[in-house]
């Protein structure tokens, strides 16, 4: 590639401008979370009273930590369940033979086309009848498995050499044992990917918990922030921004740590 020296500063300038655009909302959110609300209301973006008072207020006056805990519980349960049920399902489609296997697989594949957003009305009626409303279960049970997860793991399990299965059969391993001892360890990278995917998917749920939770005891963080926002008739911007920062920091930490693998993975892939 042509790399002229005069272009270099220009490139950095563009990079820095782009970085400012991307980081701007973060920085502004964090900065205003340090300002007293009274100053923000006056339209000032500078104050002589920089402090973490808004954070103390958010933790004391709102259920923000409870929301975080709820989200963590819900996402962890969903993740664990999807890992188990999707891998079992995928195993069946790869290593078991039974009538209607292909038909069933295409049926499951077809469910990937149906958006959950278009099915909330009957699903609400279902969880209501099951008396699951306002409970962790309501945010976990409909997502115990996912068609996408089954599809993805099926692809991964198909990479397992048939010789392994033959050897296992010779040793007399049954399906449970083969599933547990061979299949899962073999596909651990795909499982890790599915774990990350299902955790974040659950963490980012917004509409469903909004419809099905009615108390702070079970409300996850996305709807907790909505709750804070709608509760504040006085526009307590300082505290709201502080809550948003409290919510975004854990995911950013996880992302920045995870970022390393991601880049290494890509770099290795690129150099091979």
């Amino acid at each position: 590639m042509i790399q002229t020296k005069t272009l270099k500063p220009l490139r950095y300038l563009v990079l820095i401008l782009l970085a400012i655009v991307i980081l701007g909302p973060f920085i502004l959110g964090f900065w205003t979370s340090l300002l007293p609300t009274a100053d923000i209301a006056k339209g000032a973006l500078w104050s002589s009273h920089i402090s973490f008072a808004n954070y103390a207020e958010a933790v004391k006056q709102t259920a923000i930590l409870r929301y975080l805990l709820n989200s963590f519980v819900i996402s962890t349960l969903t993740m664990a369940a999807q890992l188990l049920f999707c891998s079992l399902g995928a195993y069946a489609f790869v290593f078991l033979s039974f009538k209607g296997r292909d038909l069933l697989f295409y049926l499951i594949l077809a469910t990937m086309m149906l958006p959950f957003e278009a099915e909330v009305i009957p699903n609400f009626a279902t969880v209501r009848r099951l008396n699951l409303l306002n409970h962790y279960g309501v945010m976990v049970i409909p997502f115990l498995t996912s068609a996408f997860g089954i599809f993805m793991l099926r692809q991964a399990f198909r990479q397992i050499p048939p010789e392994l299965k033959e050897a296992a059969d010779v040793e007399g391993l049954n399906h449970w044992q083969f599933y547990w001892r061979v299949t899962l360890p073999y596909a651990r990278i795909s499982l890790f990917t599915l774990a990350a995917y299902s955790f974040l998917e659950s963490w980012n749920q917004y509409l469903w918990p909004m419809l099905t939770t009615f108390s702070d005891k079970f409300r996850p963080v996305q709807d907790g922030l909505r709750q804070l926002q709608s509760q504040e008739t006085f526009n307590n911007w300082g505290m709201i921004q502080a809550s948003a920062v409290i919510v975004v920091v854990p995911t950013l930490i996880v992302l920045f740590v995870g970022q390393h693998y991601f880049k290494n993975g890509l770099n290795e892939g690129a150099t091979k």
């Binding site: 930590l65 990917t193 996880v254 740590v257 995870g258 290494n264």
Partner: peptide, 27 residues
């Protein structure tokens, strides 16, 4: 997210653990 290095995995787990701990303590 393909190639996991042991050290980094530890780091991630550690970070996650800290976050969880903070939430529990605060709560």
């Amino acid at each position: 997210m393909t190639h996991l290095k042991g050290r980094q995995r530890l780091l991630a787990l550690g970070g996650l653990f800290l976050v969880v701990l903070a939430v529990f303590v605060g709560w």
